[in-house]
């Protein structure tokens, strides 16, 4: 992507020079909030992968469903948005557990590819169900003036949600890291992700650990989805797909199974995407390709991801 002709290269530096501090700050805030959203969703992927060694394709569609839940709560049932927010988290967590129970648990001893297919099936089913139940027409995420208003800081115009998103992300991350590192459940989770068999033999209740993982991952996805909806208000059955792919990539480039890595990966992708578009407006059509190119480059140089540790399969 950096291969540009001589003339355009000049343009690029010119563009940076011309870019005032305020618009740079603007892009940074946009990138940082997008990165925070990616990070929140990526955590769900990385946790499930860390424990079950599977790509939870349905995670993206859990995000999508959460947006619809919010829509129904606020727009259809007129529940205050903060109550809806809590409700959405609960409903989404339940959905995550239901998917795990029905689509993944029966296949726990099955070959890996079967589980992958089941995950794809679950994802596809959620998309088609949403399409069928809520129609394919885009719905508009309910407007929450408090969050969607513009705030002026100096010359920079910022949507309030852009400030809320990183705060929520870091709060959630702090809570999550506390759970993982300082509670018994967290210890069990780490044990299962380190060695599934040994953890089971040592009496860890695997089913409970996995359910907890799905609850946490889905709850974070719900938080992310709610803020996503405020920031990018169009809801469609396929809204989760692209962000989902990118967030999985974020988890991979950060080092799959590593929560901090997922967050790092999320920020790299979020900031990278926004700045690419800011600096090379002519490439904006290729914005969605950015994540995949980063993926290929990083995997090539560091196959375990940035914060990943090398694991050796026992032979």
């Amino acid at each position: 992507m950096l291969i540009v002709y001589g003339g355009e290269e000049m343009e690029f530096f010119q563009a940076i020079l011309n870019m005032s501090a305020s618009s740079l700050a603007q892009h940074f805030v946009n990138g940082f909030s997008l990165g925070s959203l990616y990070a929140l969703i990526a955590i769900g992927y990385t946790m499930v992968y860390g424990i079950l060694l599977m790509i939870n394709f349905a995670h993206a569609d859990i995000v999508m469903m959460a947006c619809y839940f919010a829509f129904f709560g606020i727009t259809v049932f007129h529940i205050p948005w903060y109550l809806t927010f809590v409700g959405v988290i609960i409903a989404t967590a339940i959905l995550g557990v239901v998917i795990e129970r029905t689509a993944y648990r029966p296949l726990r001893e099955a070959p890996k590819n079967s589980v992958l297919i089941s995950a794809i099936g679950a994802s596809f089913l959620l998309e088609n169900l949403a399409n069928y139940l809520f129609s394919g027409r885009p719905l508009s995420f309910p407007d929450i003036p408090l969050l969607s208003q513009n705030i002026a800081i100096g010359e920079v115009q910022i949507q309030a949600i852009c400030l809320v998103i990183p705060v929520m992300t870091f709060l959630s991350l702090a809570v999550l890291l506390h759970i993982v590192n300082h509670t018994k459940t967290g210890m069990a989770m780490r044990a299962v992700s380190k060695d599934y068999e040994i953890a089971r033999v040592m009496g860890v209740n695997i089913d409970r650990v996995i359910s907890t993982t799905f609850i946490i991952g889905s709850a974070l996805a719900a938080i992310g989805a709610f803020m996503w909806g405020v920031r990018y208000p169009g809801i469609t059955p396929y809204l989760g797909v692209m962000p989902g792919l990118k967030c999985f990539i974020a988890a991979v480039i950060g080092g799959i199974g590593n929560i901090k890595g997922a967050v790092l990966g999320g920020f790299i992708l979020g900031l990278g995407e926004i700045f690419i578009v800011a600096f090379f407006p002519q490439l904006s059509g290729y914005r969605d390709a950015f994540a995949f190119i980063v993926l290929i480059i990083i995997l090539f140089y560091k196959p375990t991801g940035l914060l990943g540790v090398k694991t050796t399969e026992k032979v």
Binding site: G121, F124, L125, N128, L129
Partner: peptide
């Protein structure tokens, strides 16, 4: 269609 895919693999 998607239910069939799921049912098949499950």
């Amino acid at each position: 269609f998607s239910v069939l895919l799921m049912a098949c693999v499950l």
